[in-house]
Write a protein that binds this DNA or RNA. Structure first.
Lengths: 355, 355
DNA sequence: CCTGCCGCTGACAACGTTGTCCAGCAGCTA
DNA sequence: TAGCTGCTGGACAACGTTGTCAGCGGCAGG
């Protein structure tokens, strides 16, 4: 073997495609023991500078990278948390997810996330898959209303915090927005501006926030002594088709609503579209939406909304999660974050004079 | 020991808080061998219905869940892919991330993602952390411009696809939008409507897409034989403060621009705000933005944009990734997806008559 | 010169799972 | 009844890492 050939053989990592060098390989190349490599990799004390140098050299030469799967198996902690939400593409969840990620990062953890697509079965699959990966903790925006399947996991030490909606049939930490209060404020605002016939376009009634917002709507109407007609309520999927139809029905009724309260950001946007497409009525229809959204202030009129800070929701939940992981005990907590009515014009439009 | 006591002892999982039952525990309880439990858990054939039933019972009684860390260690595949992007909270990346997730899900893989916050160091940390977890593949929206650090990982079999921007100093698959063509079309559109002094507000020039869009701008101007003044170009961070200042400078110059081309969605939104806040000029300033955004059509005027489908970008990249994971070989591919000019009014405004 | 200690190093087991391989057993044929 | 086949079940090693512990050399103190 020529010098050159030996040189190359020396430098070429003895790995097949797809198999990586291990600490054993590094140890062999550096002429040291396995544990010494481990010590160097983890910055543990008790290694001569000379030895450390030889090991470092072998590491870079072989392109070694510690296998965290093995490490996790050995140590029992994965330094990762799971986030299950409805749809990452929804602008409401992006900031929430990012906030959770930032907190996780501050604690040296990675974030694994999945979208449930509002399907309870898929939610459960995802959650259990994450548990099988032994995530240290879970942040869940539930799609289903029965989370008893999580009991064994939580008993085994998987910290879990629910966000936006509480857990079903199980006692667990939860961080929520004040849906009831926010909705009540929104509807009261419309009433204060003279509206009497107010429609509510909301999400499926099985969803906790939708139910709470409906409750807030009823509370505000009742407080003002106003009746509520069946035709003013429409709860269901928030796809544009259904919402368009429901809005049209309310606006085209014999006694049409003069104001609309939209139950979440997707609904609000659809309603804005519907109102923009219809021929301008004598008196414009007022609108308040739940959830703020970008550019709401630049439409004309600006859209009055009940704002909830999704990033704060996520950050609070993640903070609570890591406090639990750090050993904080005590009964499950329920944190309710306030909402804020932001008036921009669309909620202040006056109804037509009483006939 | 009474019967009742034994009964309870029998049923109570022998686990401390935080430690979970293993297949060994299940096997002991069911009175079978370890491997038999493994067979049942994985649905492998060769187990009597009776035995299987006993095992299943032990599993539910103990709350056993397979430890995927150990499984991964043994099998070598993690069934997970990593996604590194700039900021999950940006509406451009939400759909992209979701699209990647859907493809991963279709292949039975989980998605682990992280935000680089446009910081090359953080990008590298994230990517390497994901590699240490032995993700099967990576989808990367690069923040840095040197990805040689990925070479050993890719050589070791980590499939990697870059999205939105190509890899730096390394040869790798990439899925891009036609930034150059889109920008050229946008600026040509403004020129076709009579504009001669057109400003470009873009992202930092180090970012590939920003450079390409700038190139497109220059190409369109050159094709029309128009000069470009230094004051019409502003590339830098896309925080609202800087963009506001830059836009104001262009609009307040001695010879102000009559049209603006905004380099991405964040810039566009800021520019819309700036234009809305300024006293209406004699002739309104025209605007075309890169990236479509929700409600662009409902502003008045509607905002003309160069649309790129971020979901398609993500889906295409993920598809390519899994094709690689399924063994597709060949040289690194570069896929360029077309953009689409959507005219809505803001780009069709006429410039003031020539003085 | 011996003892004891300290700093460094490496051998070994363990984490929980899966792949390999072999043993046991029932049912069949010769 | 012996031998063969086919099926079920289990013992064992291995994946790559980390924690435990013991060995080895040198050095200071007795």
């Amino acid at each position: 073997m020529t010098d050159t050939a030996r040189d190359i053989a020396d430098r070429t990592p003895p790995q097949r495609y797809g198999s990586r060098p291990t600490m054993k390989d590094v140890a062999a190349r550096a002429g040291v023991g396995l544990k010494t490599v481990s010590r160097v990799v983890n910055g543990e004390p008790g290694v001569t500078p000379d030895t450390e140098h030889r090991v470092q050299e072998a590491i870079t030469a072989l392109g070694f990278r510690r296998n965290d799967s093995a490490r996790i198996l050995r140590k029992g902690r994965t330094a990762s948390v799971g986030l299950v939400l409805e749809d990452l593409a929804d602008p409401f969840y992006g900031p929430l997810s990012r906030a959770v990620e930032e907190v996780a990062r501050a604690h040296g953890a990675l974030l694994i996330n999945g979208s449930s697509a509002e399907d309870p079965v898929r939610e459960q699959e995802l959650v259990l898959a994450l548990c099988a990966r032994r995530v240290d903790g879970l942040v869940v925006i539930p799609a289903g209303d029965d989370h008893r399947y999580l009991a064994p996991e939580m008993a085994a030490g998987v910290a879990t915090v629910f966000v936006d909606r509480p857990a079903g049939r199980i006692d667990a930490d939860a961080v929520l927005s004040d849906s009831f209060g926010g909705a009540r404020d929104a509807v009261s605002h419309l009433i204060a501006h003279g509206h009497r016939r107010i429609g509510f376009l909301g999400d499926q009634p099985g969803i906790h926030t939708a139910a709470e917002r409906l409750r807030g709507y009823h509370a505000a109407m009742a407080a003002a002594g106003l009746p509520v007609h069946d035709g003013w309520l429409s709860l269901g999927p928030t796809d544009p088709e259904r919402v368009r139809g429901a809005a049209a029905a309310m606006l085209d009724a014999a006694e049409p609503v003069t104001a609309l309260f939209a139950g979440n950001n997707r609904v609000t946007v659809t309603v804005v579209r519907v109102l923009a497409e219809r021929p301008a009525p004598a008196a414009p229809v007022a609108l308040v939406g739940f959830d703020d959204f970008e550019l709401a202030d630049l439409l004309s009129p600006g859209i009055t909304v009940v704002a909830q800070d999704s990033a704060q929701l996520g950050g609070t939940a993640a903070g609570l999660l890591f406090r639990r992981l750090d050993g904080a005990g005590g009964a499950p907590r329920r944190v309710v974050l306030p909402t804020r009515l932001i008036t921009r014009g669309s909620g202040e439009l006056s109804p037509p004079p009483l006939s």
